[in-house]
């Protein structure tokens, strides 16, 4: 636990010591801000719907971008060798890095609460679905970060890591959109794998254990895959 915290602090500091975090957060806020305000007064509805609809799209690029350096950079510079010969487990490193990237994403998400606060001045808001949507987005980002970190552990090239994680994330995202073209027996399986399907459940304000289990197990699988990828150095 202490080791996870050490890695977490170091990773978080290196995000916020470099301009990357700020640039990414600003871009995130500009895009979500535009979707928040552009329709607000035309439609005259007090809703976060537009923002919550666009964020999963932004995540497709945003999360591969912030997670691509986690292991690639250490592989490229060779610091991975230092890290992996310290008395900490591979899993501590993976979890520490995961939590740091999740915290950066949560920070970006938390800044969008400004929109929610400003909505409260305009009329009553649907608190339940808004809380649900934030939890859903955080869980969704968790699975994406897991994928991003895994992709990053595969290569020392950050661009390659970005492309790999984008492809996996985009694939999971698309599943729900192509279901109509598939035979129904496949469809239900693919629906369960689809990130989007579970998000839409939670975003309605219905927090079902099946959806939570889906996300948590997805995160666990990718973190374990990342650990396996780190360990593969030993077999080569």
């Amino acid at each position: 636990m202490k080791n996870i915290l050490t890695i977490f602090k170091k990773e978080l500091r290196s995000y916020f010591n470099s301009p990357v975090a700020y640039i990414v957060i600003v871009v995130f806020l500009i895009i979500t801000g535009w979707f928040f305000t552009s329709n607000l007064f035309i439609s005259g509805v007090v809703t976060m719907r537009n923002v919550f609809d666009i964020i999963p799209f932004i995540f497709l690029f945003f999360i591969p971008a912030i997670s691509m350096r986690t292991f690639s950079e250490e592989k490229k510079s060779g610091t991975i060798e230092l890290l992996l010969t310290k008395p900490i487990t591979d899993m501590d490193i993976v979890v520490g890095k995961f939590l740091a990237t999740l915290t950066l994403t949560a920070t970006a998400l938390a800044l969008t609460l400004i929109y929610v606060v400003s909505l409260t001045f305009l009329g009553p808001i649907d608190t339940g679905s808004i809380i649900g949507a934030y939890i859903g987005l955080l869980l969704m980002s968790g699975i994406y970060i897991g994928i991003g970190i895994f992709a990053s552990s595969l290569t020392e090239n950050q661009v390659v890591a970005f492309i790999i994680s984008f492809l996996i994330v985009f694939g999971l995202f698309l599943l729900n959109k192509v279901l109509v073209f598939l035979p129904p027996e496949f469809a239900s399986v693919l629906e369960y794998i689809s990130v989007d399907y579970h998000f839409s459940n939670i975003a309605r304000g219905v927090i079902d254990s099946r959806d939570i289990i889906y996300y948590l197990s997805g995160i666990t699988i990718f973190l374990l895959l990342t650990r396996t990828s780190l360990e593969s150095r030993r077999w080569s």
Partner: peptide, 18 residues
């Protein structure tokens, strides 16, 4: 336990430059 006893400077001396 072995790692705790060892101090290691890898080849090329990798460091966190930032």
């Amino acid at each position: 336990e072995v790692r705790r006893k060892i101090g290691y400077l890898p080849e090329q001396n990798p460091l966190y430059l930032d």
